[in-house]
């Protein structure tokens, strides 16, 4: 392969954690688009401000699968405000690095978490923008960071 991945990336690619849908999710976010080849969908179950369960589905490359998988582990059991602190840099560090052209996948993982939390607030009639911030989930924006 022309893209050398770290053992941690390959571990999360081969055995992704928390794959699938979450029927009783009360927060769902989706970022990316098929044009650029990455779509991440994040399902959260939030109880008393804590993320009690999480699942993901990703259409994308090895790095996209690995960043979504590790992101679910990093936010599971966390409070919303802790999950909102998740940065793409932390995702990359936890994976022991990503090839430069794949960095946008870590941004996508961060955005997927924020997109799901925004959905949680919207379902309660709360404007998520002051809490979560504006989301750049368009392909052109996240693709341009790594390539």
């Amino acid at each position: 392969m022309s893209t050398p991945y770290s053992p941690t990336v390959m571990d999360h690619f081969s055995n992704p954690r928390n794959v699938g849908e979450l029927p009783d999710a009360n927060a769902v976010g989706e970022v990316g688009n098929p044009k650029c080849g990455d779509i991440m969908k994040m399902y959260l179950k939030i109880e008393d401000d804590v993320i009690s369960d999480v699942r993901f589905q990703t259409f994308g490359c090895g790095a996209a699968i690995a960043t979504s998988s590790i992101a679910t582990e990093m936010i599971r059991g966390k409070k919303i405000d802790e999950a909102l602190q998740l940065t793409n840099r932390a995702v990359v560090e936890a994976l022991e690095g990503l090839p430069p052209i794949k960095l946008h996948c870590s941004v996508l993982a961060e955005q997927a978490v924020k997109s799901a939390i925004s959905d949680y607030y919207r379902r309660q009639g709360i404007d998520p923008v002051p809490i979560v911030g504006a989301l750049d989930d368009e392909c052109d924006d996240h693709c341009s960071c790594g390539a």
Binding site: M1, G37, F59, C61, G62
Partner: peptide, 26 residues
């Protein structure tokens, strides 16, 4: 399906192939 994911799994199975996916083209 996304091509690079398919190629990574094929590679684990010892099969060398290629893809038209952007992720493999650089």
């Amino acid at each position: 399906c996304e091509g690079e994911s398919l190629l990574l799994f094929l590679d684990m199975a010892g099969i060398c192939a290629s893809s038209g996916s952007a992720c493999t083209s650089g």
